[in-house]
């Protein structure tokens, strides 16, 4: 099982590096731009915070983008949330189904390892890849702060990265389940799941009546402006996240173990 896990990690390494360097790189670039934009930001901050639903949706009514924490939360928070969600979805939705789509399943499943162990090895690979992704991005954001000579509040920054990781896990778990019952790599569906949950959160923050159900979506507890403003996440949002992740993971084991494998 360890060998399958290690090989899977190696096969996904290139994708992990591309995504983490791309998402982390965009965040780093945003932070580096902060200094050159800081003066202009001060003038624009008032206007941005007063744009009604648009300001609410992107958290600019919660924090001032003239400060680094506010700028980071609105700009980098959006990029990281969307990028990491897409990476989690793409990684997880193909990891089991690629074996049948690529006809490698007959090789893998003829080795003396149970399907449950294969699911566990591949699930472990998703988990570790997302951890590595989060760490690489966090290091790049930290490097950006050092380069511009500014500091982000450590507690809020760690909370943000941790919640993003949990959000990534939730999206990945749902996509992992889709992968466990699918014979084709449903990458489009994976991106769709990530985009839908992001837009659901965006709409929930703009439309007052939809706000009551915001906690169902994974982006609700990973909202950067709220985290950097010191607002606590709703308990029910985290309960839903844990429940969805566990149910999807268990269902993946059960469904993949029972189904016929394509040739």
């Amino acid at each position: 099982m360890i060998r399958i896990f290690a090989t899977e990690l190696k096969l996904n390494l290139k994708s992990l590096l591309i995504w983490s360097l791309a998402v982390g790189g965009v965040g780093l670039a945003c932070i580096l731009l902060y200094q050159t934009m800081a003066e202009d930001m001060k003038e624009m901050a008032g206007a941005f915070s007063d744009m009604g639903a648009f300001s609410d949706a992107f958290g600019m009514s919660t924090m001032s983008i003239a400060t680094l924490p506010g700028y980071f939360a609105t700009e980098v928070g959006t990029c990281h949330g969307l990028g990491s969600g897409m990476f989690a979805a793409i990684l997880a939705i193909g990891i089991l189904s690629k074996e049948e789509e690529g006809h490698t399943g007959e090789f893998l499943y003829s080795l003396p390892v149970s399907r449950q162990k294969i699911v566990a090895a591949k699930g472990g690979c998703v988990l570790v890849s997302l951890m590595m992704f989060t760490i690489i991005c966090a290091l790049m954001y930290r490097a950006g702060c050092v380069l511009v000579g500014e500091e982000l509040p450590v507690k809020e920054f760690c909370t943000f990265m941790g919640r993003e990781f949990i959000m990534n896990l939730e999206i990945a778990a749902v996509c992992f389940f889709v992968s466990s019952v699918s014979r084709k790599n449903r990458m489009g569906l994976g991106i769709g799941i990530a985009m839908f949950t992001y837009v659901y959160d965006l709409i929930g923050r703009v439309v007052p009546s939809a706000g009551d159900y915001l906690f169902i979506g994974p982006y609700s507890y990973a909202n950067a402006p709220e985290i950097f403003a010191g607002k606590a996440a709703k308990g029910e949002a985290l309960v839903v996240a844990v429940a969805v992740t566990l149910v999807a993971a268990v269902a993946s084991f059960i469904c993949h173990g029972r189904r016929d494998l394509a040739g």
Binding site: T104, E106, F107, L111, P112, S114, G263
Partner: peptide, 19 residues
């Protein structure tokens, strides 16, 4: 199944591996 697969050598008609 696991014990059986330890003792079996299987060659599928389509020999595919990780490219």
């Amino acid at each position: 199944q696991e014990e059986i697969l330890k003792r079996v050598g299987y060659m599928p008609s389509e020999a595919w591996f990780y490219p």
